[in-house]
């Protein structure tokens, strides 16, 4: 815990096998996927550690068209996020990362096991997303008892009109250096590469 941030050093995740297969180019029309690939997906999913962070920040105001003011002084400028956070009490910042993935993928490539490397890479990508789902599930169950709930959707920087540069804002608010993550100040690229950030809204349950 740092200034209201909850850190998770090992999140339970179950990456959806069908999404991993999709990343690998699998099509349903090809028939059932090879059993060894499915087993490898399970095996790698159990080997990857997923960490994450969560923070709620009060929303203090909005300025049409498309700016949201947060209690910590952050200004979010995006029509998409404005629509998402409209009527919300707070913004929730989320981050998830799979720290060991790059080294494990490189190790598999180095060991002439490129087939395993690509599976591992796809599993890791889905694990990061699944990490965000896990954080929202546990936090959602807890805040529901205070009469609050998350918006159904969440936004990640780089999608819609949410600029990639917004990654830096989330990164800083979540103090993700505490999880060993870093961000490139120019390209806003996250390291380790299997990392994902998002914003969701916290609203009152009527």
């Amino acid at each position: 815990m740092t200034a209201g941030i909850t850190y998770y050093h090992a999140l339970p995740v179950k990456p959806p096998v069908e999404r991993v297969l999709l990343r690998l180019g699998y099509k349903k029309s090809s028939g059932p996927p090879p059993e060894d690939v499915v087993l490898a997906i399970d095996r790698f999913a159990s080997r990857l550690r997923v960490c994450g962070a969560f923070l709620r920040v009060p929303i203090t105001g909005t300025q049409a068209p498309g700016s949201v003011l947060l209690g910590d002084g952050t200004v979010i400028s995006s029509k998409g996020l404005f629509a998402l956070l409209d009527g919300c009490l707070e913004a929730a910042f989320l981050g998830a990362s799979v720290p060991d993935a790059p080294a494990l993928v490189a190790e598999r490539f180095g060991a002439n096991a490129a087939d395993e490397a690509v599976i591992l890479d796809a599993v890791a990508a889905q694990c990061a997303d699944a990490g965000l789902d896990s954080i929202l599930s546990i936090q959602g169950a807890l805040i529901r008892h205070s009469g609050l709930g998350f918006t159904r959707r969440r936004f990640s920087p780089g999608y819609g009109d949410v600029a990639l540069s917004f990654q830096k804002t989330i990164f800083d608010r979540l103090m993700l250096g505490n999880l060993g993550m870093s961000i490139d100040e120019r390209s806003f690229m996250l390291s380790p590469e299997k990392s994902v950030l998002a914003v969701a809204g916290v609203q009152t349950i009527a």
Partner: peptide, 17 residues
Amino acid sequence: LFETGAYFLPQLMRSAK
């Protein structure tokens, strides 16, 4: 086979290997 979706990435890599 990859283009038609009969193979996917791990199989492509195995063949390369």
